[in-house]
Write a protein that binds this DNA or RNA. Structure first.
Lengths: 196, 196
DNA sequence: ATTACTGTTAGTACCAAGTCATAAAATTGT
DNA sequence: ACAATTTTATGACTTGGTACTAACAGTAAT
């Protein structure tokens, strides 16, 4: 079955995404063309060589062709989510989350809630916090319910800015600007290179 | 400093566990021995070659068990504490602290470690984080040990400034300036610089 | 028909990061 | 001092490539 070049390249891309640990030789066999053809194809598609692909998977950057962050991994409960726009989660401060002495919620829980919400709102398989500027404006005590609201505010030199504000009732208790690294550019054209 | 063989091999093992993506050449440099010695060592310790190590890391992510993570009292272990001066804690990044998909430690754990250390170093019953300026400078992967070092840097309008830097090996992975609220004034006045 | 272009194949030289085997040199133990 | 251990050197071979050059077949254009 003679495939066209475009067709073969489409399939090649798929194949490599499926099983990244495949040598050019195996690919050549699979597509019944020469190794050189495979290499030309890879070059045209700017698909890196096997070792680079493996390294890529190993180091992360990867994080895969798969979906977004599973919502179970978000601290707190996501009650509203509009990818790349905004998200809301709630976290009930129960006894495990407070200092035993004064029943005040430990800061890192509020941070964790906000941070994981910032990760979740990013429409990308891999979102990591590069930088954050945060403020705890009021103590939160046991029994209170914290509502975190995240807003994506745009990009700044490759990082996505997410603003998260957390409230108990209508009192702000926490706010933070998160600078999020993401592996791919925002949706749309996915013609991006990998240059390192 | 002449190390014994056994000692070198012990360190070698550690080093490779820490940073698996290191070539024999780099290792030879690091330990100031020849490449061949490194290779003999690896053989004796049956440590596979670089590419195999990379592949191992890469494939491990593939067949992964996903699990949810509760944020417990997992803020690291304080190993050195000089109240109102400095403190050190270590946190081993085990499987519960990472994103299931890519084995990268979730940011809030690093934050939690640093933040709780900042709380601990304050000589007061009540210390709360008012503000924080933090930066994640390198991803931390499962199995790595994060050493957080906190330095009290003085006061600024009622808030105590604590500088926390976290390292894996000698690589900085996190840094943050914490502005801590405290109920009582500090007892002793002390300002010290940190040089890095 | 000649020319130009595309797509494919082939072959060479080279590289990184190893392996394996073998030998010589240096260090250490006694 | 001498043997044993440890380290270094050396060369040949392996994998999975890159980079480049050349050649050939088929199709299209003039």
């Amino acid at each position: 079955m003679k495939r066209t070049k475009a067709e073969r390249q489409r399939l090649l891309k798929e194949k490599i995404e499926e099983t990244p640990f495949i040598t050019d030789e195996q690919l050549a066999n699979f597509f019944a063309v020469s190794i050189q053809t495979i290499r030309l194809d890879r070059m045209e598609l700017s698909i890196p060589e096997l070792r680079e692909r493996i390294k890529y998977v190993a180091t992360n950057q990867w994080n895969e062709t798969v979906k977004a962050l599973p919502l179970e991994e978000v601290i707190g409960e996501v009650i509203d989510l509009e990818l790349d726009r905004r998200a809301i989660s709630i976290l009930d401060i129960h006894s495990d989350l407070v200092f035993s002495r004064n029943k005040i919620a430990r800061g890192h829980h509020l941070f964790a809630q906000a941070n994981s919400l910032a990760v979740a709102v990013i429409n990308d398989e891999l979102a990591l916090t590069a930088k954050a500027d945060i403020k705890f404006t009021r103590q939160v005590k046991e029994g209170e319910r914290v509502v975190a609201k995240a807003f994506v505010e745009g990009n700044q030199k490759g990082l996505t800015i997410v603003n998260v504000k957390s409230y108990v009732g209508n009192e702000k208790v926490f706010s933070g600007i998160f600078h999020m690294y993401r592996s791919n550019e925002e949706k749309g054209e996915d013609n991006h290179e990998i240059s390192n």
